[in-house]
Design a protein around this nucleic acid. Structure first.
Length: 487
RNA sequence: GGCGGCGUACCCAAGCGGCUAAGGGAGAGGUCUGCAAAACCUUUAUUCGCCGGUUCGAAUCCGGCCGCCGCCUCCA
C-alpha cells in the first residue's frame, strides 16, 4: 500500500509500527453547530480508510474525538442561553444523527476533551518542566522557538511565518506564534482546577493527550481536513514530540476541501450546506458516492449538478441489480450458453485485484468506482445476450457478490433495489405510496391485455409526470423513481 | 510577500515515462420494445492551459509564462 504522507510530501509505502495492526486517530469536530458537507467528507474519507485497512486484514484501532470545550461552544451557549455542556451534548447528538445517516461507522473510541483533563494537565506540567512552556497570568504557552522542528509538517520556517504573520500580537507571549496549552478561565466560564489556577485546555493539547493515551506515544496515522495542517497538527507535533522526545505520528493524511463556486466552503464565508439540508433532497448513498468519486486530496466542487450525476450512478447500480433479481426470479431454466460468459467471468475475477490496486494507491476510490461500473456494464451485456440456466445464474451471482464486497469497503451498493427506490419515493414523491403505484400498474396491465394502448400509455404518462417510471419486463411491470438529470 | 496545490472531451473525473488517454453524466444515431423505459452498441480529446527542454518515447520529468485555488487567524 502506498499512502500520501503530508509530512514527507509524497506517497510512501505504508508499513505499520506493529505488524498487522494500524492505529488511526482522526480529528473529529467541535460540537457547537450542525455539521456541513465538508465535515461529511472528512468523516467519510477516514471511514473508508479505516474500512479498507480492515478489508486488507489489519487489526484497526480507529479513534475520532469530539472537542467538547472551546470558545465557540462557550459563545454558542451564551447565545442560546443554555449551559455549555448542554450545547456540546446537543450537537454531539446531531452529529451522530447525520453521520449515522451517511453510513459513517462509529469509531472504536470517541474520546472527549473534557474527559481527559487529568492527562492534559500532566503533559502541560511536563512541558513546563522540560522548558518548552511558560506560564503567564494563569495561561500556559508553548514556546515554538524551543522546538527545532517547528514547521516541518506545514513546510514553513518560523521566519517565513513571522514575515506574513497576521496573528494578534499579545505582548505577554515571547513569540506571536506561541500557542496556548492552557487558558485561564474568566468569571462564569467553565473551569477545571490546575496548578496554574482554574482554566481549560487549549485546542491543540487535547488531541495530543487523547491520541497518546489510547494509541501510544508513537502511532501510525493521524488525519483530518487539510485546514488542520497549520496550526493544529503542527502544534500537536511540537507539544507531543517535545514532551516524549519520540516521533509522534508516522503518516499524516489530510483530505481536500469542498468548494462552492471554486471557493472553500466555510462557516466564516457563510457558503456552506449542512448535511441535514442535503439529506432532505438526496439519498445518503448519493452523497457518499459523490464524495468518493473524486480523490480524497483533491478539491470537490459542490453543486446540485454533481449530486444529480452521483444519483444517476447509484441508480445505475440498483437498476442493474433489479434486472438481476428479475433474471433470478425466472428460475433455473433450460441451459442456454452465452458467448459473453468469458468476458463476464474475467471482469468478475479481476474486480477485486483492480479494486485493491486502486485502493492500495493512496485510496483511489474514484478509480475503484470506475472499475465497479465496468463490471456493471459487463453484467448488463451478459444479460442482454439472453442466457439462461445454472451457469448463467452462478456467473451473475459471482459478479454481484464481487460488487457487494468491494462496495462494502466504500459502504455503498449494500441495499436492495426495492429499498433504494422506496427511499427515493419517500423523499422525491412523498404524496404517493407504493400501494397506489401498484394499483396504477394493475389498471394499466388490464388495459394492455385488451391492447388499449392509449389508456395504458395515459397511465404511464400520468405517473411519469410525478417522477415515476414504469418498465415492462419479462416478469411484469416494475416501477422506479426517476433519478439523475431527468428527475 | 512566503509556502503548497491544480488546469485532461459539453460537464464531472482517473491517469504519476511506453498497451486503443479509465469510468460516470449530458447530447446525437442505432438495436430491443405495441409504444416506451432500462440495457447494449456507435459517436463527442491524433490530444491532455501555453511555450520551450530532457528522453528512442511525456498528459505524465525539468524550466518559463498564463489562469484558478488553498494555507500563513478559527475552520473538516
Amino acid at each position: 500500500m502506498r499512502v500520501f504522507n503530508t509530512l514527507s510530501g509524497k506517497k510512501e509505502v505504508f508499513s505499520p509500527l506493529e505488524e498487522g495492526k494500524v492505529k488511526i486517530y482522526a480529528c473529529g469536530v467541535t460540537v457547537y453547530d450542525l455539521c456541513h458537507i465538508g465535515h461529511a467528507r472528512s468523516a467519510i474519507v477516514f471511514d473508508v480508510i479505516r474500512r479498507y485497512f480492515r478489508y486488507k486484514g489489519f487489526d484497526v484501532t480507529y479513534i475520532r474525538n469530539f472537542t467538547d470545550i472551546d470558545d465557540k461552544i462557550i459563545n454558542r451557549a451564551k447565545k442560546e442561553g443554555i449551559p455549555w455542556d448542554e450545547v456540546a451534548r446537543k450537537y454531539t447528538e446531531e452529529y451522530y444523527r447525520d453521520m449515522d445517516a451517511l453510513g459513517v461507522e462509529r469509531a472504536d473510541l470517541e474520546p472527549r476533551a473534557t474527559e481527559h483533563i487529568k492527562e492534559i494537565i500532566e503533559i502541560v506540567k511536563g512541558l513546563i518542566e522540560k522548558g518548552y512552556a511558560y506560564v503567564v497570568d494563569g495561561d500556559v504557552y508553548f514556546e515554538v522557538e524551543k522546538f527545532k522542528d517547528y514547521g516541518k509538517l506545514s513546510k514553513r520556517s518560523l521566519k517565513d511565518m513571522m514575515a506574513g504573520a497576521r496573528v494578534d500580537v499579545d505582548e505577554r507571549k515571547k513569540n506571536p506564534l506561541d500557542f496556548a496549552l492552557w487558558k485561564a478561565s474568566k468569571e462564569g466560564e467553565p473551569a477545571w482546577p490546575s496548578p496554574w489556577g482554574p482554566g481549560r485546555p487549549g485546542w491543540h493539547i487535547e488531541c495530543s493527550a487523547m491520541s497518546m493515551k489510547h494509541l501510544g506515544e508513537t502511532f501510525d496515522i493521524h488525519g483530518g481536513g487539510a485546514d488542520l495542517i497549520f496550526p493544529h497538527h503542527e502544534n500537536e507535533i511540537a507539544q507531543s514530540e517535545a514532551y516524549t522526545g519520540k516521533p509522534f505520528v508516522r503518516y499524516w493524511i489530510h483530505n481536500g476541501f469542498i468548494t462552492i463556486d471554486r471557493e472553500k466552503m466555510s462557516k466564516s464565508l457563510g457558503n456552506f450546506f449542512t448535511i441535514r439540508d442535503i439529506l432532505k433532497r438526496f439519498d445518503p448513498e448519493v452523497v457518499r458516492v459523490f464524495l468518493l468519486s473524486t480523490h480524497y486530496r483533491s478539491p470537490i466542487e459542490f453543486s446540485e449538478e454533481q449530486l444529480l450525476e452521483a444519483e444517476a450512478s447509484v441508480d445505475r447500480f440498483y437498476t442493474t441489480l433489479q434486472r438481476v433479481e428479475i433474471f433470478k426470479s425466472l428460475g433455473s431454466r433450460k441451459e442456454r450458453r452465452s458467448p459473453l460468459e468469458e468476458p463476464l467471468r474475467q471482469s468478475t475475477e479481476s474486480l477485486r485485484a483492480r479494486f485493491e490496486e486502486a485502493m492500495d494507491d493512496d485510496f483511489n476510490t474514484a478509480l475503484a468506482l470506475g472499475h465497479m461500473y465496468e463490471l456493471l456494464r459487463e453484467i448488463n451485456r451478459f444479460l442482454d445476450s439472453k442466457p439462461s440456466g445454472d451457469v448463467a445464474l452462478s456467473l451473475i451471482s459471482d459478479a454481484i457478490r464481487a460488487l457487494r464486497e468491494t462496495g462494502a469497503v466504500l459502504n455503498v451498493f449494500q441495499r436492495s433495489p426495492k429499498e433504494w427506490h422506496l427511499s427515493l419515493l419517500r423523499t422525491r414523491v412523498p404524496n404517493m405510496t407504493e400501494e397506489e403505484i401498484q394499483k396504477k400498474i394493475e389498471l394499466r396491465a388490464s388495459a394492455r391485455k385488451e391492447k388499449d394502448w392509449k389508456r395504458a400509455d395515459a397511465i404511464r404518462d400520468e405517473l411519469k409526470e410525478k417522477g415515476i417510471i414504469l418498465e415492462d419486463t419479462p416478469s411484469g411491470t416494475i416501477w422506479r423513481v426517476k433519478a439523475g438529470h431527468g428527475r
